[in-house]
Amino acid sequence: MTDNLLEAIGLQKSFGALKVAQDVTLRLRPGERHALIGPNGAGKSTLLNCLVGKLIPDTGSVMFDGQSVLGRKPYEINQMGISRVFQTPEIFGDLSVQENMMIPCFAKRDGAFQMNALTAMSSQRDVIEKAEEMLVEMKLADKRHMHAASMSRGDKRRLEIAMCLSQDPRLLLLDEPTAGMARADTNNTIDLLKQIKDERDITIAIIEHDMHVVFSLAERITVLAQGTPLVEDTPDNIKGHPKVREAYLGESQDAA
């Protein structure tokens, strides 16, 4: 299959003697919502880190839309169209929500963030309006003057997703977006991600432990255990898969 948006093939990564990824393969089809599940230490976050250039795998290849990602700097990979949302929201804590939103808009418009020290920001209406548009869309507009650090966790997450979306990425990677959230916030996030998918042409890959989230969102699922992918299939087939049960429950049983 050459029409995959992202193909990570044969990734291996060791930290010293610890092999965290062995022969990991991940294929993402354009426009799908793909979940990565697996017990702790299965190598899910390592895989994401390899995709955005935070880690460099020991062997293997990562192709995004026909171009190799390996060897590129994180900011170059972002410019290719990959955005990442972290387990703990990575936002600019001391800046206002509005300023948080303006940074990705500038970065998107000016490539590597043109270092123009003389043009006043207040005169660049296009960026301000784009930021405002995103804030309204993500229902953050009434918090625009708030200190980003003083927002609730759910709002921080929404802000981070908004920042990533404002750059119109082609692939959005999410690392446990609902970890530590209350059920209501979790459901809001699910709705938000569904809505993103419906309104934009974005491929989403999501790491998640909460099976409620996984099964309400994912169209395909890859299960990782101990650094290797076990299966890749549709949610219905994954539910009863014996290997998956084994990985999660730690013993081999006949699935009745």
Binding site: V52, K54, K73, P74, Y75, E76, N78, Q79, S83, R84, E90, I91, F92, G93, D94, L95, E99, M102, I103, P104, F106, A107, K108, G111, A112, F113, M115, M121, M163, Q167
Partner: peptide, 17 residues
């Protein structure tokens, strides 16, 4: 603004391109 972004979060800044 970019500099303040770098000050607050280098990782996020580089992952915003």
């Amino acid at each position: 603004l970019a500099l303040r972004g770098v000050r607050e979060n280098r990782l996020r800044m580089s992952l915003l391109g």
